[in-house]
Simulated scan of single mutants.
Amino acid sequence: MDKFEELFKVYNCNLNDETVKKEVDAIISKHLDENNNKEVYKQCLSLIDLTSLNGNDTEAGIVAMTEKVNDFRKQFSTLPNVAAICVYPAMVPHVKENLTEDVRIAAVAGGFPASQTFIEVKVAEAAMTALEGADEIDAVISVGKFLEGKYDEVYEEISEIKASCRGAQLKVILETGDLKTAANIKKAALIAMAAGADFIKTSTGKTTVSATLEATYVMCQAIKEWNDKNNAKVGYKAAGGIATTDDAVKYYTLVKEILGKEWLNNSLFRFGASRLTNSLLSSIEGKEINYF
């Protein structure tokens, strides 16, 4: 039997999309209210990868964002800072040069966002990005190869990128909106974890469908099963279209109920966001805040 078919059999990838949706709705209906409070908002704030991934990003703009992070505790002395700043590879040196807070530097690499380039380019970009000072690398799987069933190639690419990260953590972006089904999302999550992913992440935020609660449910279940069988904790990152406090609390609720309180920290749980930060700050402070 093919090693990937064996992997999928061990972890049960025969998932039904309607069943997943019903289970998500049940969890949210039962547990959302208990998490809808300022302490959870504060915790969600500490999980954010403050992100700027625009074609018109400038050095000055990224430095200004970094300075906002540096000054955050002066403005909000009782609140936790964000977990990381996430930028394009060429912007990593500017963040590193200016960052003074204990906040990690994350960067997309490996042909982000489409991953439609040569593996040699992906590996080189990840290596260069880590060398420039990134603590974390966010890289996308080859979705086209996955959909063609070329699982071995997807696995090998992730493994090679992981090896090139020079000690930086690797967040593997599944691009769940393009995978379409719960079964595909589960399979992609398993391949990524088997290949050495430190985190699995929903989306680039550059596709029509980005993060969803259903994809999160499937990914968190995959992480739970992986940890149960291998005693290896893999992180989860929600990214793409998560903009409101209500959104954040729903994702938080799923992670809490499926993976447990051990995952409710920025070592194992992240939000990739820009607008979400101000939304959480506004909910915490009880007035509109546009700090970032």
Rank of each mutant, 00 (worst) to 15 (best):
A168C: 12
Q169D: 12
L170H: 04
L170P: 03
L170Y: 04
L170C: 10
K171A: 09
I173F: 09
L174Y: 02
D178I: 06
D178E: 14
L179S: 11
K180L: 13
K180N: 12
K180I: 15
T181M: 10
A182D: 09
A182M: 14
A182W: 05
A182C: 15
A182S: 15
N184D: 08
N184Y: 06
N184P: 06
I185G: 09
I185S: 08
K186L: 13
I191K: 06
A192I: 01
A192G: 02
A194V: 02
G196Y: 07
G196I: 04
A197L: 05
A197F: 04
A197Q: 05
D198A: 09
D198G: 08
I200N: 08
I200E: 08
K201P: 03
K201M: 04
T202W: 00
T202P: 00
T202Y: 00
S203I: 05
S203W: 07
S203Q: 10
S203Y: 09
S203G: 13
T204M: 10
S210P: 00
S210H: 09
A211T: 07
A211K: 01
A211F: 02
T212R: 13
T212L: 08
T212H: 10
L213I: 08
E214T: 12
E214L: 10
E214I: 10
Y217C: 08
M219T: 12
C220A: 14
C220L: 11
Q221G: 06
Q221E: 14
A222R: 10
A222F: 07
I223L: 13
I223A: 10
K224M: 09
K224L: 14
K224V: 08
E225N: 15
E225V: 04
W226Y: 15
D228N: 14
D228L: 13
D228S: 12
K229G: 04
K229S: 12
K229I: 13
K229H: 12
N230T: 15
N230M: 13
N230Y: 14
N231P: 00
N231C: 01
K233Y: 06
K233H: 03
V234N: 05
G235W: 02
G235R: 00
Y236P: 08
K237D: 00
K237G: 02
K237C: 00
A238R: 01
A238S: 15
A239L: 01
A239H: 04
G240N: 03
G240I: 01
G241A: 11
G241P: 12
G241I: 10
A243D: 13
T245K: 15
D246Q: 15
D247C: 02
K250T: 09
K250S: 11
K250H: 12
Y251L: 03
Y251M: 01
L254E: 04
L254V: 06
L254W: 03
E257G: 02
L259E: 07
L259V: 06
L259H: 04
